[in-house]
Design a protein around this nucleic acid. Structure first.
Lengths: 249, 249
DNA sequence: AGAATAGTGTCTGTCAGACAGTATCGC
DNA sequence: GCGATACTGTCTGACAGACACTATTCT
C-alpha cells in the first residue's frame, strides 16, 4: 500500500468555479466583482485551509477527467455548471504531501442567479470571495498558483472578445454584461465600443422586446444569448474578421 | 495486479515534436512544410501503428509530467528541445486498451538544423512527415485527435503574432522566418506586413551585420533572436499595443 | 540583360478608443 | 427640472492588407 502510493501517482481534478457579482461596487473596485468559490478542507491533508474544490479521480465512475471535475462540483457544492473547461496540469512529487500527484485544473462559470452553492460532503465551509485579492491567506497545496492560472485563462478568453454569457442569467441587460466583462478584466470598458461589438458581429446576443425597469432611470432592453453562441470559439468573431483576400491563398 | 490496473489510471505523456522544412515547396503547398515526428510502435498495444512519441510517467524519475515528456524525447529519439509546453489532456477508460488512462499532450519545437532524431529504444522507426495530410493512415490510440490539437495550439500561437523562433536555427533570414510562419499557418503572408511587424515591435529579432549568400540573387541579412524573446508571451506585442488610455482605469 | 530574391514606400479600408450628445425613466 | 442610466453618432489615430516599386546578387 505504502509502496504503491509511491509508485502510482494521485490524480485529482480541481475546479475554479467563477461567478460575477458587481452589485454595490464602485468603478475603481470593479475587479472585486469576479468571485471564486473556495471550500474549507475538513480532512487531512491541509485540513482547515481554504482551497479550490477538488477530488480524486474514480476510474470506475468517471468517464474522463472532466467528468471527475463535474462530479466534484456536484458532490461538494451540488451544482451543475453550464461551462467547464481544462486549464492546465500541475504535477510533481512535492505538491501534495501524500506523494507524487497530478492536479488537473478546470475552470467553470456559474450564472449569477444560480449562486446557491450548498455545503456538502467532506467540506467544512463554502465561500464566495473575490478571485483576486481575497483575504483568506495561503490556500491549500498549490491552489494559489492554480487560482492565478484559472483567472488568467478566463481573462485571456474575454480579452479575445469572448462574451462570458455563461456567467449571466438567461435574460440580462447590456449594462450588466459590460459590468461582467469589466469585473473579469479588472478595468472599465468604453460603453460605446462595447455595444458596437455586439451589433457589428454576428448575432451573439439577441434583443428581447421587453425592458427591465429597476430604479429611477431609463429602463434597459433585455437580451438573451443566441443559440449559436459559444464561449469556446470567439476567434471567429475576434479574428479581425479577415479582410478581403487577407493576403493570398 | 489486474485489479490494480483497473483502479489506478495509466499516466502517459505524448509529445508532438514539430519542425519546419519548406525547401522545394511551391507557395500553394506551403502547408506541407510543417513536419511532425512520428514513431512506429514496436510493442503492443497498437504495435506497428505510427504514433506520437510517448511514454509512461515514472514517479521515481520524473519531477513533473513535463519532465516525463522531456525524458520521452531523450529516450525515444535522443533529442533535447528548446521549447516544450502542455497542450491539453486526453483521458477516459477506452482510449488505451490497457485500461483507464490519462494522456497528457505536449508540443515541442525543434530548430531546423537539429533534425538529427535517431531511432532508439522501443521504437521501430522514426519519420518526419507533414503535420497535416501525412499519408500514414490512422495513428495509434487517439493520436490523430492529439495531433490535430497540437497543430491547433501551435497555429493559435502564431496567429497571435508569436514568432516561432524556436523552429529556426540560431541565425536566419527574414525570408526563412516568414516561410516558417506560412508553413504553420497554412497560407502565405504579405512580405511587407510581416517585416513591418518586426521593426515596429520591440526588438524580438536583431540584425547581425552579416549576410547570407545562397544563390543567384541578392543576399539577405542574417538575424538572431533577441535575448528578451519568449514564445510564451506574444500578447505583449500583439495586444493591439494598448492605445493611449485604452479606456479608463 | 534577365532571373530571382531582398527590401521599401505608400495607399486605403477597417476598427476601436474617446467623447459628446440624445433619450427615457422616477422623483 | 434633476439625477441617473440607456443608447447613438462622430471624430480620429493606428494598424494591417495590398501592391507597386527599388536594390542587389549570380548567370
Amino acid at each position: 500500500m505504502t509502496i504503491q502510493k509511491m509508485l502510482d501517482p494521485l490524480v485529482v481534478a480541481d475546479v475554479a468555479l467563477f461567478s460575477v457579482d458587481t452589485s454595490g461596487l464602485q468603478a475603481h473596485e470593479i475587479d472585486k466583482g469576479l468571485k471564486i468559490l473556495l471550500v474549507k478542507r475538513s480532512h487531512a491533508p491541509e485540513q482547515g485551509l481554504w482551497s479550490l474544490p477538488g477530488g480524486i479521480l474514480q476510474p470506475e465512475v468517471d468517464s474522463s477527467l472532466q467528468a471527475t471535475a463535474e462530479r466534484v462540483l456536484r458532490q461538494k457544492v451540488s451544482v451543475e455548471v453550464p461551462y467547464l473547461r481544462e486549464v492546465c496540469s500541475f504535477s510533481g512529487p512535492m505538491r501534495d504531501p501524500r506523494g507524487w500527484s497530478i492536479g488537473m485544473l478546470y475552470y467553470a462559470l456559474l450564472p449569477r442567479d444560480q449562486v446557491h452553492a450548498i455545503v456538502k460532503d467532506s467540506v467544512d465551509a463554502v465561500e464566495w470571495v473575490p478571485a483576486v485579492g481575497h483575504g483568506l491567506g495561503k490556500l491549500a497545496f498549490d491552489h494559489d498558483a492554480q487560482l492565478d492560472a484559472a483567472v488568467q485563462a478566463l481573462r485571456d478568453k474575454v480579452e479575445r472578445r469572448a462574451l462570458p454569457l455563461h456567467l449571466m442569467p438567461a435574460e440580462f441587460t447590456l449594462g450588466a454584461l459590460q459590468k461582467c466583462c469589466e469585473a473579469i478584466l479588472g478595468h472599465t470598458l468604453d460603453k460605446s465600443s462595447f455595444r458596437r461589438r455586439l451589433v457589428t458581429e454576428p448575432p451573439v446576443v439577441i434583443a428581447l422586446g421587453r425592458k427591465e425597469r429597476v430604479g429611477a432611470q431609463r429602463p434597459s432592453q433585455l437580451y438573451k444569448a443566441s443559440d449559436s453562441f459559444s464561449f469556446d470559439e470567439p476567434e471567429k468573431y475576434a479574428a479581425r474578421s479577415r479582410r478581403k483576400g487577407d493576403n493570398c491563398m
